[in-house]
Design a protein around this nucleic acid. Structure first.
Lengths: 248, 248
DNA sequence: AAGTGGTCTAGACCACTCG
DNA sequence: GAGTGGTCTAGACCACTTC
């Protein structure tokens, strides 16, 4: 069948953890236990627990049992690529509309981020996103020339641009890098978000690229302060500690 | 020897990528190539490339060679735990001083985050951090009761609290969760950072915990807007894509 | 000393990409 | 169809934790 063994095991463990079957701080069964219980090899079990470790749910130390670190599954940064997906997880109603879609030459930064020749024509999009009717985020996106036509063809109230591209054009975003900072609202930001000029905004910029590393879009998203919090957990797997005790 | 094979291979590949030997978009040698070249098994090679994938340097698709996604190594979120470590990477001079260290009962949120009984006495610390002499960040930390004494014993201008704890008390932080948002400066923030009240601040809150999941500290760091940008890259490994093409 | 996770090997089959 | 990465097995030895 199409079922992948280690994801099956990871899913069962995740369910057990999220349901509270294992308390925070509790020990997981040993790898050999799990291997026997699932009739799988130890390698497969290790792949399963590595998945959960990458999600920040469990942690490990050599020689000791794995322990549960958290019960909540954290919004992964993968979901940052899609405002719509993220909002759906919150159970809030999302609306959005394009305020403008114009072709113009790329700025120096846009050309750089999109790996295009300077002054290549890009599609600049301004979009307002609302959560339960409240203006929440202003999105400014530069789409690379080769996807511009596909984006222009989308209706004004499309739910998710990237989802639409994936379904219609077989363009699937795989990798991204996110830059997060704070800045004061400009006059356009203030007008659209119905706040005062200079009010704090949380900005998240990112590039989406195809599986082969070809940049698709460069986006500048600005959220009203208080409307959103980003969350990241660093597990030992993702960021191996290189700190030592007792250096001298 | 103490050398770990897969880290050795990963290190060599990382160096080759960062030095530009492989361009962005270029293909890496196949797993079997690498295995032969390093006289290692394919499993070990896979562990090596998985390390680089977690760093966001390379990407992969089944059936095709791995490709280089980026040249720069990104600040990992592990470094978020240490302002001092992060600033050192920038080559900037860091100074900081404790403005106050007082014991007081934990607030409801602090008790919750530190997994302590309500009203347990914690050590509340207010600290100003400067980068090249510029006030850059205000840090408010609540240390759990069982580390309070160790923190109180530190000198006023200690470079890094967590490093000091690691060296002196064998308390090593392993896991953390980071919450990132924006907010307007309060009056204390404004005074310390030498900005106007209501100016945008980038806030990063986190809990540090020991290897066994015991919380050590709960920190609220507020950065002047423009002084810092957080960067995260989501590799396919860390956040597997579950989006499909052509659903209908 | 026993148990457990970390590393490593040498195979195997499959799904997918690419020429 | 050949090449490549994704998954999986069944062993092995070592470093570390725990009792």
């Amino acid at each position: 069948m199409g079922t992948i063994r280690y994801l099956e095991i990871a899913g069962a463990l995740r369910t057990a953890i999220l349901s509270g079957e294992y308390a925070v701080g509790a020990q997981l069964p040993s790898e050999s236990d799990l291997a026997a219980r699932w009739s799988a090899s130890r390698g497969t079990v290790r792949q399963a627990v590595a998945t959960l470790a990458a999600e920040g749910l469990i942690g490990s130390r050599q020689g000791a049992r794995r322990i549960v670190l958290r019960h909540e599954r954290r919004h992964s940064f993968g979901e940052l690529n899609s405002f719509a997906q993220w909002a759906e997880g919150l159970g809030q109603e999302v609306t959005s509309r394009f305020l403008s879609r114009v072709r113009r030459p790329a700025t120096a930064e846009e050309a750089e981020r999109l790996a295009l020749a300077p002054d290549t024509e890009i599609l600049a999009v301004l979009r307002l996103r609302l959560l339960d009717g409240e203006p929440t985020m202003v999105e400014r996106t530069a789409y690379a020339d080769w996807v511009a036509a596909a984006v222009e063809a989308l209706p004004d109230d499309v739910r998710s641009v990237m989802d639409s591209l994936a379904n219609d054009s077989a363009i699937v975003a795989h990798y991204g890098e996110h830059l997060i900072d704070a800045l004061p609202a400009g006059s356009e930001d203030a007008r659209l978000l119905e706040i005062r000029r200079g009010s704090p905004l949380l900005r998240q910029r990112h590039v989406s690229a195809t599986a082969t590393g070809r940049p698709i879009e460069w986006t500048d998203d600005r959220y009203r302060a208080g409307s959103v919090t980003f969350s990241v957990s660093n597990s030992a797997v993702a960021t191996p500690l290189e700190r030592r005790t007792g250096e001298g």
